[in-house]
Amino acid sequence: MNAAAPSSSGRSAGGAPSPETWDYTETFLPESDTAARARQQGEGFGAWPVGRGTASLLTVLARLANARAVVEIGTGAGVSGLALFAGMQPDGILTSIDVEAEHQNAARQAFREVGIAPQRFRLIAGAALTVLPKLSDGAYDLVLVDGDKLEYAEYVEQALRLLRHGGVLAVDNALRRGRVADPGNSDDDAIAVREAIEAVRDNTDLTCSLLPVGDGLLVAVKS
């Protein structure tokens, strides 16, 4: 069967956005020089940052949640942190967890470069499943999951404990370049992510949507 050709509406015959439309939406908002440098650094570390479309959506989610307390699982070089700060309240505090201190040093530099005061971020170097249980129940407005894919189910469980009622859960890499949507894909990380996002879908205390932005972003609101 031949691949569907893009139509004049910007969608393929099957209804999916054309590559041109996808690129337009992903790059719709400009990226700051600081974020671009952090993105390049993160890619150099092998800590692949959120896509530009995902970053802009995280800013919107933080603003909608009126976020003052945010947890980020997976600091990278600070791309997602910069996006979250852009939507958080001026007194908001980001708690970001990563096993690599080198990544967090890069993130710290990026945050300071845009004038974010040191007291507004806590960068904790350590394993997320060791750090998360030490954080307070119901004390956070938004939790971003973007760490070890094999631990996504445990991250989500911890995130639901940490979130206040009305708080927002965001799970990045929810599609894993199409592997999650393929039921025949038995890669360990694809299975782990699939099980985690399906658990969110089936949780009656959550209202969620799976968005095809970046590498997939699952968004849920806690009742």
Rank of each mutant, 00 (worst) to 15 (best):
residue 2 N to Q: 13
residue 3 A to T: 04
residue 3 A to C: 01
residue 6 P to I: 08
residue 8 S to D: 14
residue 8 S to Y: 07
residue 9 S to T: 13
residue 25 T to Q: 14
residue 25 T to M: 12
residue 26 E to R: 01
residue 32 S to D: 06
residue 34 T to V: 15
residue 35 A to Q: 13
residue 37 R to F: 01
residue 38 A to K: 09
residue 39 R to S: 08
residue 39 R to G: 01
residue 42 G to W: 09
residue 46 G to S: 03
residue 50 V to G: 07
residue 52 R to T: 06
residue 52 R to S: 07
residue 53 G to I: 01
residue 54 T to P: 06
residue 57 L to F: 07
residue 59 T to G: 15
residue 59 T to I: 07
residue 60 V to L: 12
residue 64 L to E: 01
residue 67 A to H: 07
residue 68 R to C: 12
residue 71 V to R: 08
residue 73 I to W: 11
residue 74 G to E: 04
residue 75 T to F: 13
residue 79 V to L: 14
residue 79 V to Y: 13
residue 81 G to M: 10
residue 82 L to D: 09
residue 84 L to W: 11
residue 86 A to I: 05
residue 88 M to L: 03
residue 89 Q to P: 04
residue 90 P to A: 10
residue 91 D to S: 15
residue 92 G to D: 11
residue 93 I to K: 09
residue 93 I to T: 14
residue 93 I to R: 15
residue 95 T to S: 11
residue 110 A to I: 05
residue 112 R to K: 05
residue 113 E to S: 14
residue 123 L to V: 08
residue 124 I to Y: 06
residue 126 G to K: 12
residue 127 A to S: 12
residue 130 T to H: 01
residue 132 L to Y: 03
residue 134 K to E: 11
residue 139 A to D: 15
residue 139 A to W: 11
residue 143 V to S: 06
residue 146 D to R: 08
residue 146 D to T: 04
residue 146 D to K: 08
residue 149 K to F: 06
residue 151 E to Y: 01
residue 153 A to F: 05
residue 155 Y to N: 07
residue 158 Q to D: 14
residue 161 R to G: 09
residue 168 V to W: 12
residue 177 R to I: 06
residue 178 G to Q: 01
residue 178 G to T: 02
residue 182 D to W: 10
residue 182 D to I: 05
residue 183 P to G: 06
residue 184 G to M: 06
residue 185 N to S: 13
residue 187 D to P: 13
residue 187 D to N: 14
residue 189 D to C: 05
residue 190 A to W: 02
residue 195 E to R: 14
residue 200 V to R: 12
residue 200 V to Y: 13
residue 201 R to C: 02
residue 202 D to G: 04
residue 202 D to W: 07
residue 203 N to P: 11
residue 204 T to G: 04
residue 204 T to F: 08
residue 208 C to Q: 02
residue 212 P to K: 04
residue 213 V to D: 03
residue 214 G to F: 11
residue 216 G to H: 08
residue 217 L to P: 15
